[in-house]
Design a binder for these strands. Structure first.
Length: 533
DNA sequence: CTGGGGTCCT
DNA sequence: AGGACCC
């Protein structure tokens, strides 16, 4: 087998709870639960001593621990910010950092370890070991993994000292084993597993769906062919597995059950989508739909502004009431949007986007008939690259323009982004919308390709004069609750963060004022500058 | 009495 | 557009 890689999995302890305890240290000494709607999504370790578990219902949690303190965690903004600070720290060790959710990161430290190996550094094993170490692999992985335990400890120390967050680490020669090993000793500990203990580690799990990558649906399929335990999965006849899963999936699942995971650590770049959703008891009138979607849109526009890129597609998600346990059933509709609608100088941009959103809504819901909605979601995808005001990027923009135009030229009037050969799939995505999508323009206005492009970006005189920067550079002011004198002296970056935080707090307040009492959420950075009187 | 996000594949 | 997977 190949043990040439060295992987570290970092998992922040009860992440949301730690962020809230850092924001408000008095929460450290009390049992704390993070609440989303009627659920405790995570809790600190004080609360766990009472038996509070992940995703426990509020009444049940309160019964177990009447003194449980609940903090609303429905707005993930602060968690997301802290999460990216962690990832940024990790990227100082290797560019190969893959995020999984907000609280987990994989690092491929192979190169770093090999450098340390050459430096003949000390071979001291730090932290826990899973399994016995009596018979060791001689391929060199043992030394690498031992060195990695020191690196993992260093990394966890830095996360603690820089961000005041404790974490767990798993160290192994692949992602799967690193993740499973790290969960063996919690919280604030680390565990290394050597290849010879891989099978034992996997077998220590309770069921096939405890293996990351094997979810509920796969487990059900496995049961269908009589495979209910991990041991049975390890020994299953591959041919029989293939009959239900197909060749590729069967091989993958079987390998996972043996602790084999060839997947690489894929560096996570900027997010592919930015979205918000809000579940609710019941919405059945259109004005209420509009209010909810406007709240979501206002918050979402701030997130997109923080991101700096401009989205090209908007997606609406609706969950209808369903008496069955089919919780996951959501319907989505998406359409392209003209990026220029996000321009800060665009008047009534919220109203314009809302018009598009309501058209999407009407494609899911016939408002003339009764309906019963339990979730609304809004998401932006397919981002344009952030504008960089350099000469090089200016030229690159022109090149992009040229390639877009040449693709359009080759394919007649098709979607510039996905030049699919079959034209049958190219139904206009925004049907009857009064705001024509770029695609519709191309389909209806068969004008010169230059003219077509100018329509796409509206008032630009020519492609090379594109004021792309205007799309996302909103002006920054001093928040009314901050000290203006202090604000003036702050670096531009910090000013922007404070201003965006202020706008976000306002949007959040508007979002919650109608539905529930919201405790004020102190912001750590802002607190330094807020006036005391 | 079931969150609010994300990813990739089909 | 939906469905699988992850947290």
């Amino acid at each position: 087998m190949d043990h040439s890689r060295t992987i570290i999995h970092i998992d922040l302890d009860c992440f949301y709870a730690q962020v809230e305890m850092n924001k408000n240290p008095s929460l450290r000494t009390v049992p704390l639960g993070i609440q989303q709607k009627n659920i405790v999504v995570t809790s600190n370790y004080t609360a766990r001593e009472f038996g509070i578990k992940k995703c426990m219902l509020i009444p049940e949690a309160k019964k177990l621990c009447p003194s449980l303190v609940l903090v609303n965690g429905e707005d993930l903004h602060d968690y997301r910010q802290t999460s990216y600070k962690v990832t940024n720290l990790l990227q100082k060790y290797t560019p190969l950092v893959e995020r999984l959710g907000l609280d987990e990161n994989y690092l491929d430290v192979t190169t770093l370890i090999n450098e340390k190996l050459n430096q003949k550094s000390d071979l001291k094993l730090v932290g826990n070991v899973f399994g016995d170490t009596s018979d060791k692999c001689e391929c060199g992985c043992t030394e690498r993994l031992i060195i990695a335990t020191t690196v993992a400890q260093e990394i966890r120390d830095v996360i603690k000292s820089e961000l005041n967050l404790t974490s767990c680490a798993g160290i192994a020669h692949n992602k799967l084993l690193a993740k499973i090993a790290g969960a063996r000793h919690k919280p604030n500990q680390q565990t290394v597993v050597f290849p010879n203990s891989a099978l034992e580690l996997i077998l220590s799990l309770n069921a096939p769906n405890d293996i990351p990558g094997i979810g509920r649906a796969l487990f059900e399929q496995l049961k269908c062919i009589g495979v209910e335990t991990i041991e049975e999965l390890q020994n299953v006849d591959l041919k029989r597995l293939e009959t239900v899963l197909g060749q590729d999936k069967a091989k993958l699942v079987h390998e996972l059950s043996l602790g084999i995971d060839k997947s690489g650590v894929k560096p996570t770049g900027k997010p592919q989508s930015i979205g918000l959703e809000d579940s609710c008891r019941s919405i059945s009138v259109e004005t209420e739909v509009k209010i909810k979607l406007e709240q979501l849109l206002n918050r979402l526009l701030l997130l997109v502004e923080e991101d700096g890129r401009v989205p090209k597609t908007i997606k609406l998600t609706v969950r209808k009431f369903n008496k069955d346990n089919k919780m996951s059933h959501r319907e989505t509709r998406q359409c392209n949007v003209n990026p220029s609608i996000f321009s800060s100088s665009q008047p009534n941009k919220e109203a314009k986007i809302m018009t598009t959103i309501m058209h999407l809504f009407n494609r899911i819901i016939d408002v003339k008939k009764p309906y019963h909605i339990t979730l609304l979601g809004l998401s932006f995808t397919k981002f344009q690259e952030p504008p960089k005001n350099t000469l090089a990027s200016f030229l690159r923009k022109d090149l992009e323009v040229q390639s877009v135009l040449s693709i359009e030229n080759q394919n007649g009037v098709e979607d510039a982004e996905s030049p699919v050969p079959s034209t049958s799939k190219l139904a206009p995505t925004e049907g009857e919308s009064p705001t024509p999508s770029p695609k519709k323009l191309k389909l209806t206005n068969l004008v010169s390709k230059k003219r077509c492009f100018e329509d796409y970006y509206e008032d630009c005189e020519s492609p090379s004069k594109l004021k792309v920067a205007d799309l996302c550079l909103d002006s920054v002011s001093c928040p009314p609750d901050a000290d203006k004198e202090v604000f003036k002296e702050l670096p531009k970056e910090v000013q922007k963060e404070l201003w965006e935080d202020y706008k976000r707090r306002r949007a959040s307040e508007m979002n919650f004022c109608s539905s529930q009492v919201k405790k004020t959420k102190p912001n750590t950075l802002l607190n330094y500058f807020i006036r005391n009187n």
